[in-house]
């Protein structure tokens, strides 16, 4: 069977998508899809905190394909629209790939908005020089003049290395992940309401629950993968109900058995009123 590469790639796209839906395609199509010069490895999507497993296809040193990992327990073979940019974002023409120095004539100057390309060695030398000057070991408050914000997407190893670098290396306590800012208010509220500082529920509940209440959570647009699991449960489980409470009609309402739009900042919780 002859097949040009473009048709071949399309066949792959169809076969993978059909498999995620639990559809078996005729053998001839899947056999064609199996032979290609792409090496597949596993990764995790970095675009939100859901943690979707992604298969990454590399050809000639370039990522050319991505696919939701069918074996990943979180997303079960699906990605959301953000997955579209997993490979594309790395090859954007406007991507910054070389260090830029703020300043003029190759010298750092904070008072200008001009930037020019410099080499990595020079960039690291200038950064080290500025950090050392800020820390000033003679000054007891020196270590407080530097700090690092970590990403919630750091791996354990990255977080460990950053922590060692800041605390053991620079002797500064000024390191925090964005999770500190993100969760501080939520933890306060959880402790007050439930006496424990963890969000309740886990991903498996999406298949086991009978009733879902989405209150101020726009899952369809913000957490599309978990939404696909909720959708599947609602459509396949007898008696399953979805209640959506929001200050405007969002995409969750397409699936809602009971959609409630309320005025912002009401005196009484509308859900309790509805249930009474």
């Amino acid at each position: 069977m002859t097949m040009n590469r473009r048709d071949f790639i399309k066949t792959n796209a169809v076969a993978a998508t059909a498999a995620a839906a639990g559809l078996a395609l005729p053998a001839v199509k899947t056999a064609a899809a199996a032979q290609d010069g792409i090496r597949w490895d596993k990764g995790v999507c970095r675009f939100c905190g859901t943690g979707c497993g992604v298969l990454v296809g590399v050809k000639d040193g370039r990522v050319v394909a991505t696919q939701g990992d069918p074996d990943a327990p979180v997303n079960k073979g699906l990605n959301c629209i953000k997955g579209y940019f997993l490979s594309k974002i790395m090859y954007g023409r406007d991507r910054l790939t070389k260090p830029l120095l703020r300043g003029r004539n190759g010298k750092f100057d904070k008072n200008t908005n001009e930037f020019s390309e410099i080499g990595w060695d020079q960039a690291f030398d200038i950064m080290a020089e500025k950090w050392k000057a800020a820390i000033d070991p003679e000054d007891p408050k020196g270590a407080t003049r530097v700090g690092m914000f970590g990403s919630g997407q750091w791996t354990i190893w990255e977080g460990y290395a950053a922590s060692k670098f800041m605390k053991a290396g620079l002797r500064s306590n000024n390191i925090d992940p964005n999770a500190r800012h993100c969760m501080a208010s939520a933890v306060g509220a959880f402790m007050r309401a439930f006496g424990i500082d963890e969000p309740m529920g886990c991903y498996d509940d999406l298949e086991h629950a009978d009733v879902f209440v989405l209150w101020g959570a726009n899952m369809a647009e913000m957490h599309p993968i978990l939404w696909s699991r909720l959708t599947n449960t609602r459509l396949t489980k007898k008696g399953c109900e979805v209640h959506v409470l929001s200050t405007f009609e969002n995409r969750n309402f397409e699936l809602a058995d009971n959609g409630i739009v309320f005025t912002p900042q009401p005196d009484a919780p509308p859900a309790l009123h509805d249930a009474a």
């Binding site: 790639i9 792959n12 696919q67 699906l78 990605n79 490979s87 369809a220 599309p224 939404w227």
Partner: peptide, 10 residues
């Protein structure tokens, strides 16, 4: 819902 399962860009 619409889930992206496979993406190829070359």
């Amino acid at each position: 819902n619409a889930s992206l399962v496979y993406h190829h860009c070359e």
